[in-house]
Design a protein around this nucleic acid. Structure first.
Length: 429
RNA sequence: GUGACCGUAGCUCAGUAGGCAGAGCACCAGAUUGUGGCUCUGGAUGUCGCGGGUUCGAGCCCCGUCGGUCACCCCA
């Protein structure tokens, strides 16, 4: 009886699923690099201020979801609750603003920690891949980034993915819009659901996100951010849409799309499967964050990025029946009888592996029957049998484990001279 | 943080009215000398999530707790 279990909301990735992870990682790497993004890896924890200052003090993430602790030097540290802040911190710290702009960075398989009640598609540790492009405000960069995220899912084989798009303005026009939203909602206050009464004070943008039926008519009639953009933001939004149209990407404007992190400006977007109860269904989201670098002590630096959940991505592929690779099987399995034969097996295995074959051998002192069972179960195509006779003749028995069960024995098995065995197996796998 | 359902072997689960802890799969071994798949035979494996209570007796009833699943909140 084991004494420990994986802690709540964390999961082991066992060998049966590891190849699926490998596929996602490979597609992300190759696609990002084709778009000119370079890999970056940041630590999985930062000083708490990195997240508290950027994500926003009033957000759920900072208020109640961060894994924050003091280290032995009494420094407050926080396990990464989202991917962007650490990358921006690294950009500033390493003076990447001196490089040609934009600086385009991606990360794969970054562990993300949030203290939430686990449920389908939501874990206390999950992993994200993501991209960040810093130092450029051109709307073409927004479109390229969205196209990149879209292409990753296309290459993975996901179907029926839609992009939702909105603009929430910037430091110039958003405060006025939020005031307008508050003015609209304040007379309706007594009629709002309890959550929305809190939102009205704490985070008015989220009023638009309410799912309570009683509030839907109010949402429908509420002022929408895209209608109150300043001239610069409106032009930016129009340009992003124009590029997305030119790329023929399947996006839809969702005037109710607001995101949970305070640092977003202008463009915000989410990717989700088309029909999906819309619960924990978003597989990626992001937006522009032109004020974030300043919050972290840098010069004003525009930026845009996204994060995408790998557990959700893999689950989506499974649900959609996208074939994912099985764990790698050995190609050759070596069985040996006796101490001398085992030495021959060990050395043969190494010779075969040196030619890039996947090779397993039987361990322990088990009967040949048991070793053959293991060979069969391993999925290997060929079994090599080594016993006293084979040693004496310097020729090993090679058995075709893929032959039909009713094939005659001499069709399944042959004897190959030890000198040519490596080349023979190389030839026949 | 809120709510619902669920915790029995490695996995999927059964367990009658409260009366000796079970099946299938998987694993291990055997079915005449050194040969897999199909079949047959045998074997090992459990704090019945944990703690308390009721009872002559609890996997089963009661309370608590921890965990899982799902939904809300929020998010990837």
């Amino acid at each position: 009886m084991p004494s420990f279990k994986a802690v709540q909301g964390t999961r082991d990735i066992l060998p049966d699923l590891a190849p699926a992870w490998q596929v996602v990682e490979t597609v992300v790497r190759e696609t990002c690099e084709r778009y000119g993004y370079q890999r970056i890896e940041t630590p999985i924890f930062e000083e708490t201020g990195v997240y508290a200052r950027s994500v926003g003090a009033g957000t759920d993430i900072v208020e109640k979801e961060m894994y924050t602790f003091k280290d032995r030097g009494d420094t407050s540290l926080t396990l990464e609750p989202e991917g962007t802040a650490g990358v921006v911190r690294a950009y500033l710290e390493h003076g990447m603003f001196t490089q040609p702009q934009p600086v385009k960075l991606y990360y794969v398989r970054a562990p993300i920690f949030r203290y939430e009640r686990p449920q389908k598609g939501r874990y206390r540790e999950h992993h994200q891949f993501g991209c960040e492009a810093l130092g450029e405000s051109d709307p073409a960069l927004d479109a390229e980034l969205i196209a990149l995220l879209w292409e990753i899912y296309q290459r993975l084989g996901a179907r029926d993915i839609v992009i939702q798009l909105n603009s929430i303005g910037d430091q110039n026009c958003r405060p006025a819009y939020i005031q307008r939203l508050v003015d609209y909602y304040t007379p309706l206050k007594d009629d709002l659901c309890d959550d929305c009464k809190v939102r009205l004070v704490k985070n008015p943008l989220r009023l638009l996100d309410c799912k309570e039926p009683q509030d839907q008519p109010k949402i429908a009639a509420a002022p929408k951010s895209a209608d109150y953009l300043c001239a610069a933001c409106a032009a930016h939004f129009a340009a992003v849409r124009g590029y997305l149209d030119a790329l023929a990407l399947p996006y839809a404007i969702n005037p109710l799309l607001v995101r949970g992190l305070d640092y977003y400006t202008r463009t915000v977007f989410e990717l989700a499967p088309e029909q999906a109860g819309r619960r924990q269904s978003a597989i990626g989201g992001g937006g522009r964050y032109d004020g974030l670098a300043e919050l972290l002590g840098g010069k004003p630096t525009p930026g845009i990025g996204f994060g995408s959940g790998m557990e959700r991505a893999i689950e989506l592929l499974r649900e959609q029946g996208v074939p994912l690779p099985d764990p790698a099987r050995p190609q050759v399995f070596i069985a040996a009888l006796g101490a001398e034969a085992k030495t021959a097996a060990v050395t043969l295995a190494q010779q075969l592996r040196a030619t890039d074959l996947r090779v397993q051998m039987a361990f322990g002192e088990r009967s040949l029957k048991a070793q053959m069972r293991a060979a069969n179960g391993s999925g290997a195509r060929w079994a090599v049998l080594i016993g006293s006779g084979e040693l004496a003749n310097a020729a090993y028995a090679v058995r075709d484990l893929a032959a039909p069960a009713d094939a005659p024995d001499d069709a399944k098995q042959q004897t190959i001279a030890r000198d040519v065995l490596v080349a023979w197996l190389r030839e026949h796998t």
